[in-house]
Structure formats: C-alpha cells, structure tokens
Design a binder for these strands. Structure first.
Lengths: 128, 128
DNA sequence: AAGATACTACGATGAACATCGTACGTCAAG
DNA sequence: CTTGACGTACGATGTTCATCGTAGTATCTT
C-alpha cells in the first residue's frame, strides 16, 4: 500500500465497485457479478485483476488456490480522487459548478436534497 | 448539432475549456493557450480539432482561410454529461456521495460553501 | 488412475488516444 | 516570379485499454 495507485479506468472501476460492496472476493465471485450485467469472459476479469494488482489498485492473497482480491483503497478514498480529478479538469475547481452539473444530470429527490443539505451542515460545522 | 456528441476525452476537454472561455477561435489561438501550459505541437492541436469536428464536439467555420472552431455544446451541458457519468459510474447515482468526494478532495472556502448552500436553496425552490 | 473441472498465466489482438512529421496549397512581400 | 510564412490534410507511430484464446497446472470425482 505504498505509492498511491493511479486513477482506475472504466473497467477497473466496475470491478472495484464489486469489491467494495462484497468485500474480498475471488475472480469467480467478481466475474459472476460482472457477467450478470454484460457478457464478459472469465479470463477477461482475471486479466484485469492481475493488471490491477500490478498497479496497486487491489491486493492479492494467493495463499489459497483461488486467489482472493480486495480493493487496496477504501471506496471513499477513490471517490475523492475521482471527484477531485473531474473537479479540476472540467469545473475549474468549483464545487458549486460540479454540484450543479450533478443535479441537472438527473432528477434528485427531495429526500436526497435534504440529505445533501444536512451533509453540508455537518461539514461546515467541522470547519471554523 | 444533431446527435449528442460522445463524452470528450482528456485532451479534448482541455481544448473545449479554451473554447468555452475564449469563444470561437482559430487553431493558432487555441494552440497558444495549450502550449503555454505544456509543450505541444501546433499540428497536434490541429489534428485534435479535426477529430473533434468529426465527432461533433466542435463546429468548424471554414469560409475563411484560417478555420474557426467553436464548441458545439455549451459548457454547462457538457459538464452535466460528465458529472452524470461519474455520478453513475462511481457514486451509485448519489449526489450526496459525489459532493462528499468533491469536498474532501480539496479545501473548500467558507464562501464557496455558502454559495453552494444558496444554490441548493435556489434549486429546491424550483421543485415542488 | 483417468478424465473432467477449476484456476492462473500470458501472449495476441483490435480499438481508442495522443502526438508528431511530412506533404501540399495559398498568399503576401521582396 | 519566387520565396518564405502560414495554413490544412493526413499518414505513421507508440501507448493504453479491454477482451479473449490457449496453454499449463492443480484438484476433484468416479
């Protein structure tokens, strides 16, 4: 868990989401989830995981015959990387503009808006 | 301006940001801005713009000798695409989580937070 | 023990990206 | 008119991504 891993690609991110939701898993586990969404070969997922291990995106436990993979970084850490990256690339660093973009991209429920507001309160309170 | 253009790539997005801020511009104009940030050949920018025109990301006016390019979509439209894309790929569609990611990715000023809150108020008011 | 099953390793392939060099046309000086 | 500055067009190249097939090895089943 030394150097920060690079930003995950699209396919890599999809695998990471599986790992974040299921926890450590075998290639088979992950493949089942992925394949249920789009036709994908087992070895494709395997190869991805091997590459991801090289990049440091996942850690591999190969003590057992079926290797077990887990995300090397917690979900929120990676999310922060991705959000920050887009924030700078497309929104000049403006969190407000990013939020505008997100809200206009989909209908957001009143509940979600309320949660958002509450989160803001929380965040502001922890900063003098 | 028929079918929606695809999501811009990294290099394409950088060019678009120039077009959004300067308005319609020639290859030379754009190249000057880009090259001031990182060493880049003139023809590289030219080629990018030609490809972007094919993809429909920019419109080209070739009535003059120096062609004039402009973004085919307004900034906010593209921003919405990008935010929505990331929102679904990495945040399960949760605007709140995206906001968390963005805020934790950089220090956000009190002013920015206030603007954000005001923007939320505004947005909520327009939705019963 | 033999065959089927389950894994990993890895090379090959094709598409998308990003970058650049070269060719070629136009136009305004000199 | 010729030459140099400036412009577009486009092929070539190297890289990263994503996907898959094949080979080889270990394990299970009968």
């Amino acid at each position: 868990m030394q150097p920060d891993p690079p930003k995950p690609t699209e396919a890599e991110l999809e695998i990471l989401t599986v790992l974040w939701s299921r926890g450590p898993a075998t290639v088979r586990d992950i493949h089942e989830v992925i394949a249920s969404r789009k036709p994908t070969q087992y070895t494709t997922v395997l190869k991805q995981l091997q590459i991801m291990a090289e990049k440091g995106l996942v850690n591999r436990d190969d003590t057992e015959r079926s290797h077990i993979y887990e995300a090397s970084r917690p979900m929120v850490w990676t999310q922060s990387q991705l959000a920050g990256d887009l924030l700078h690339r497309a929104f000049k660093g403006s969190a407000r503009e990013l939020m505008m973009g997100a809200l206009s991209a989909q209908k957001t429920s009143k509940r979600e808006l309320a949660e958002l507001r509450r989160m803001l309160d929380q965040y502001e309170k922890e900063m003098p």
